[in-house]
Amino acid sequence: MPKAVWNGIVIAESDDTVVVESNHYFPRSALRDDVVRESGTHTVCPWKGTASYYTLEHEGTRSDDAVWYYPEPKPDAAMVRDRVAFWKDVQVVA
């Protein structure tokens, strides 16, 4: 079962991931709410739409914008709706 590991802790785990462009998109419900903080960062992907981000924070450690998601993905990217993906210092272990 794929897991997202950050700072030595599992922050998401699910056997229902979707792989897009080599990134595992986990259901949003699989992400631990106690480690995420809203971020004001947004980026635009030409085919997926506008991405929003979460910052991770736990026991004094922080990783800015390490989680992204598409609140309103474009039609061709509907498979990532209500899902999150990770980068920076988050490791996804399948």
Score class of each variant (00 low, 15 high):
80 V>M: 11
25 Y>P: 06
78 A>C: 01
34 D>F: 02
71 P>F: 11
18 V>F: 10
1 M>D: 04
80 V>E: 09
56 L>G: 05
71 P>Y: 08
34 D>S: 07
94 A>L: 13
9 I>V: 13
43 T>V: 11
33 D>V: 07
29 S>K: 14
68 W>K: 13
57 E>P: 14
59 E>N: 12
4 A>M: 05
84 V>I: 09
49 G>A: 02
1 M>F: 13
38 E>I: 03
48 K>I: 00
20 V>M: 09
89 D>T: 07
61 T>A: 15
33 D>M: 10
57 E>T: 10
17 T>N: 09
81 R>M: 12
35 V>S: 08
75 P>A: 15
9 I>G: 06
73 P>R: 09
22 S>H: 15
74 K>C: 00
61 T>R: 15
87 W>A: 04
11 I>T: 04
88 K>V: 01
7 N>Q: 10
67 V>K: 08
47 W>Y: 08
35 V>A: 05
31 L>C: 05
42 H>T: 11
44 V>P: 01
17 T>V: 15
76 D>T: 13
78 A>E: 05
65 D>I: 03
7 N>P: 00
86 F>G: 00
80 V>P: 03
12 A>Y: 03
66 A>V: 00
53 Y>S: 05
33 D>H: 13
82 D>N: 15
73 P>V: 02
36 V>P: 03
25 Y>A: 02
84 V>K: 12
30 A>D: 08
49 G>F: 02
5 V>N: 03
29 S>Y: 02
